[in-house]
């Protein structure tokens, strides 16, 4: 039995963050990644009759995303991760640990963690994620050296990661844990 249209749309919406993150791990340019995501979403809708269920859909989406990301990277002559079979397999294994992640819980935890940041860190987060600034653009905006701006960003990253882990009980390697 094929996946229902409503279910398919729901999965595309729910899995968008993971898929976009997966695509950007292969081809970091945001606009290309967005194009790839749109393409595979359209393809998924077109192929709905051939997709059995959610897990089938997820496996299909990731495989399609990988192939199309590599192609898009080559066509646009943009740098991406030089994937060979070994790295592609390892990358897929690492991403599979995220299949069980519950976006709404993590999003909620992240919102609260951002709320706990210092004013300077909040500004940095706002500029990067609301304004979409790269490290270099941030450096210019804040009138700081690029390297130290990236270090600041990495510290905010670490703080938020730790905060989310504490809230959700996730191990440092990204998996739910109990210890």
């Amino acid at each position: 039995m094929a996946i229902s249209p409503d279910e398919l749309v729901q999965v595309l919406i729910e899995e968008r963050v993971k898929l976009m993150a997966y695509i950007r791990s292969i081809v970091p340019d945001y606009h290309i990644a967005e194009d790839v995501f749109q393409e595979i979403s359209i393809l998924a809708v077109r192929k709905a009759d051939e997709i059995n269920d959610q897990s089938h859909l997820m496996a299909w989406l990731r495989l399609s995303a990988r192939h199309r990301s590599i192609n898009a990277s080559k066509k646009n002559n943009r740098r991406g991760l030089p994937l060979d079979e070994e790295l592609a397999t390892k990358l897929d294994d690492a991403w599979s640990a995220y299949d069980e992640k519950h976006l709404s819980e993590e999003g909620e935890a992240l919102e609260r963690c951002i709320g706990q940041l210092t004013a300077n860190a909040k500004r940095l987060v706002h500029l990067r994620y609301s304004e979409g600034m790269t490290g270099e653009q941030l450096a210019k905006q804040l009138n700081r050296p690029t390297t130290s701006t990236y270090v600041m960003l990495s510290r905010v990253h670490a703080t938020l990661r730790k905060c989310i882990q504490d809230r959700l009980g996730i191990s440092p390697r990204g998996r739910r844990t109990n210890a």
């Binding site: 963050v17 987060v125 706002h126 994620y129 609301s130």
Partner: peptide, 11 residues
Amino acid sequence: CYQEQLSAEVM
């Protein structure tokens, strides 16, 4: 990569 995308989505 995941945290970057999640942050962008949340913000």
